[in-house]
């Protein structure tokens, strides 16, 4: 009974449908960027802590539910146009896969590393979304476009961050996904294939986001591009992610 209750509670933080809607509802209500950042970092860590601390034996049906949740949000991601909501849906799709990693007996320290490295690109995306809201009044895919010509430095960072978020090599999520596929395929090849299809949907959604924002003609109105020092910080975090990814890849593969 207690185990079920813990799983139910953890299902809010490591999203399991329909409990996954709680996170997205909260994210929708929060308007302050820093609170959003905190939410993206803390949310999966709370879930992991709850499960790992209670030494639960996870039932097999969780695999199906976690995969279904991830697939559902990956599919829904294709038609999301608001960048913060996009980040929330991708986070839901990513974090629900942490159940799989737990069922594959991944060491706790690595699980926390997985959660942080999945969340970090989304944190950057939330910051960039705030930057878009500041410049255009809204961070909305397909509303204005042409960022590549109007604010090229900002665009470069945005594209790289989106790439990191959708598990492109050499970012950590890529190695995490690869590890999950390798560990899943021997027991349930179908689950491994679904994992790869979810990954494919992320790429689709990522390309949709990039195209909706960067493609188009130069804005007539002068818009301030990102400052060099700010870019430096972003590059530093992204480089850390790449180095972390390669290191993580070396450890888990």
């Amino acid at each position: 009974m207690l185990d079920s209750l813990i799983i139910l509670l953890a299902g809010i933080f490591l999203p399991l449908f329909p409990l996954s809607m709680v996170f997205n509802a909260i994210l929708d209500k929060i308007t302050h960027s820093w609170l959003r950042l905190l939410l993206f970092i803390a949310w999966p860590l709370i879930g992991l802590f709850m499960v790992l601390d209670s030494n639960l034996v996870l039932p097999d049906w969780l695999l199906t539910l976690a995969l279904a949740t991830s697939a559902l949000y990956a599919l829904r991601l294709l038609t999301v146009r608001e960048v913060n909501q996009w980040s929330g849906f991708l986070a839901t799709s990513l974090w629900s896969l942490l159940w799989l990693a737990m069922m594959q007996e991944t060491p706790p320290a690595l699980l926390y590393a997985y959660a942080i490295s999945m969340s970090l690109p989304l944190v950057l995306l939330v910051l960039l979304s705030a930057g878009l809201e500041q410049r255009y009044g809204a961070a909305y895919i397909g509303l204005y476009g042409g960022l590549a010509r109007t604010i090229p430095r900002f665009t470069g960072v945005l594209v790289t961050v989106v790439m990191a978020a959708i598990a492109t090599p050499l970012f950590p999520s890529f190695f995490i996904m690869l590890d999950m596929v390798v560990k899943t395929i021997s027991a349930t090849p179908l689950a491994a294939t679904i994992l790869l299809l979810i990954w494919l949907l992320w790429s689709w959604a990522g390309a949709h986001l990039i195209q909706g924002l960067i493609v188009g003609r130069t804005s007539i109105v002068k818009i301030a591009d990102m400052e060099i020092t700010t870019i430096g910080w972003y590059i530093l975090v992204l480089l850390a992610l790449v180095v972390g990814g390669i290191y993580l890849g070396g450890v888990i593969l």
Partner: peptide, 14 residues
């Protein structure tokens, strides 16, 4: 092109 290539990645990873 990207989506077709990503579809092609799936069997390679499997």
């Amino acid at each position: 092109t990207l989506i077709t290539y990503r579809i092609g990645d799936i069997p390679l990873i499997l």
